[in-house]
Design a protein around this nucleic acid. Structure first.
Lengths: 328, 328
DNA sequence: TTGAAAGCGCTAACAT
DNA sequence: ATGTTAGCGCTTTCAA
């Protein structure tokens, strides 16, 4: 366990003051070239690396943003992670990922732990339903950007995707192809995207006099619940099924495959295209396509702006999904 | 942007010294109950949260470990993340995830950025081939635990899974069922797991006089490469195909599905079961099963031990995968 | 062009 | 049981 070398070790070695060393490593003042050389040589020679914690402590800047994410195993969110990382990297800001597993307690706990002093700001895809629950843990001095899911009465920036129109169009499409019994699997009830999408399904079905509440299965936004719901829907004799998110859609594909059913032939599937994953394989289902990468990019940019200027007023940006039927 | 309250604000408000406040928030000395109460009331009242950076700066302890991971979208790694998180949580240590996307430069850069002062240690699933490349960025004063992939000549702890025997058994099994032309898709060549698995395939095929180098497709451990390789293997008339990791296996399933081919019927598939994902759906392929969660647990524990006692000598732990044929 | 020194918020040794 | 204070490594103001 070698001793860790500090700025004063470098100063001593180079025969200058710590201030001078600081000037050269930060390029923050003019330094005589030969002095700079001496210092840089000592740095290399001693293997000095500035202690980031000390630096953050002093400057209050960490160049670190936390992304609070419900499920890193969901391709939608991993795509989001990558696009956010990319934007932040342009300003040399790193992304710290905190995985809540769709659990309120974990979300609140993780935010709480990291809130004071560790990061410069938060991007949050919250699993919490409304602002009341969240408020106690939100540090008032840090920027927050909410992404993907809208929190009721939340006075911060948000970037979301509206899927209502696209999903209505999708259900219309199924109906126009003659489907009458169309099953639906929802996500976690408390989440805004789940509500919006369910409403799209319900409104469209009702408009055509086809709505039947027993065709709606209440899922959990994760894959586990799908198999059972799928079975119920099949048992009820549905000829088509719409599914409230990507991961459940992917699971439905798998489970249909296991039963020897071919999507788009034996039963028509309307799902969500969220991440790269689905682009590659799933060409035989109708899709609601979210601009996932763009969502991350917009959120990342917003965070960068807010870091620059914390006093901007909050804004809510809504991107639009679009419907793309399978061209079989 | 409200003012952030510090320990001295609390001290002032409660009419005690900063030391006393520190004692109550850390439970590090006896404090008279009524004093404690006063302090706790001030803390609640002012909304004080200890500045973690300042604390880390002072104590040198961050309770934060970095996990350097090649691809968070790969279920194998997200399972690993969850099991590591779980173990670390028992000591109140948090996990920071750094995503390299199988890119050496990103890996070296990210380690470098976080090396000094941000974390207490690193768990690394490295995409780098050998220790020489890695060495310049490794801070000598921090613990490292290498996981999943073995780095040549690396003098640190490692926890890996040996799949050689299980994959040999799997290929034997295919051969015993009468398959003679068995295609193979490899992972990224530089990675230890890729090498080990390829060797298992080659050794077994050779032992039966069935080896033919043109049946081997060089992949990249990600899904993108699979479709083309799969086509080649089908064109060559293979009746079975073995695939070097989970994500490429999943992609092969999807692409077969797209072609209307049923795994285990039209062509036999030998893949890897790594994460939860595959447990749910893929019941019609033969599988090499890695103890993924256990891998994470062992690595997490090792890190915790090392944090406790940095001077332990390095150890290399190897877990064993096992082969499980599809029982159709 | 360089240096001296204050101070960021906290912990913990030492004093009371 | 509580308070006083040094000091963690760094940046930055001010002086030289």
């Amino acid at each position: 366990m070698a001793k860790v070398v500090s700025i004063s070790d470098v100063a001593k070695d180079a025969g200058v003051s710590v201030a001078t060393v600081s000037y050269v490593i930060n390029n923050t003042k003019q330094v005589k070239p030969e002095t700079r050389e001496k210092v840089e040589s000592s740095i290399r020679h001693l293997g000095f690396r500035p202690n980031m914690i000390a630096r953050s402590f002093k400057t209050g800047k960490k160049n670190l943003v936390a992304f609070v994410v419900p499920d890193i195993a969901n391709n939608f969110f991993s795509t989001l992670i990558e696009s956010i990382e990319q934007v932040l990297a342009s300003q040399n800001v790193k992304l710290m990922i905190l995985n809540t597993k769709e659990t309120k307690e974990r979300e609140l706990d993780l935010i709480n732990v990291v809130a004071n002093g560790v990061v410069d700001g938060f991007i949050v895809a919250s699993t919490v339903e409304n602002y009341k629950e969240l408020k106690p843990v939100l540090p008032s001095n840090l920027p927050f950007v909410f992404i993907d899911r809208q929190i009721e009465k939340c006075p911060y920036d948000s970037i979301t995707v509206n899927c209502y129109n696209a999903l209505c169009e999708g259900v219309e499409y199924l109906i126009s192809k003659g489907h009458k019994k169309i099953g639906y699997i929802t996500g976690l009830s408390r989440i805004s995207t789940t509500k919006e999408r369910l409403k799209a399904y319900e409104d469209t079905m009702k408009a055509h006099g086809l709505y039947n509440p027993s065709l709606v299965m209440v899922g959990d936004s994760m894959r586990h619940c799908v198999d059972e719901h799928l079975q119920n829907i099949l048992d009820m004799g549905c000829t088509a099924i719409a599914i409230s998110n990507n991961i459940m859609g992917a699971e439905a594909m798998i489970q249909m495959n296991r039963r020897g059913l071919i999507p788009g032939k034996d039963i028509e599937l309307l799902g969500f295209l969220d991440g790269e994953e689905l682009q590659y394989g799933f060409h035989n289902i109708d899709l609601v396509c979210q601009p996932t990468a763009e969502l991350g990019i917009v959120a990342g940019k917003r965070m960068l702006e807010r870091l620059e200027n914390p006093d901007m007023s909050a804004s809510n940006i809504v991107l639009q999904a679009k419907f793309e039927p399978y061209k079989g």
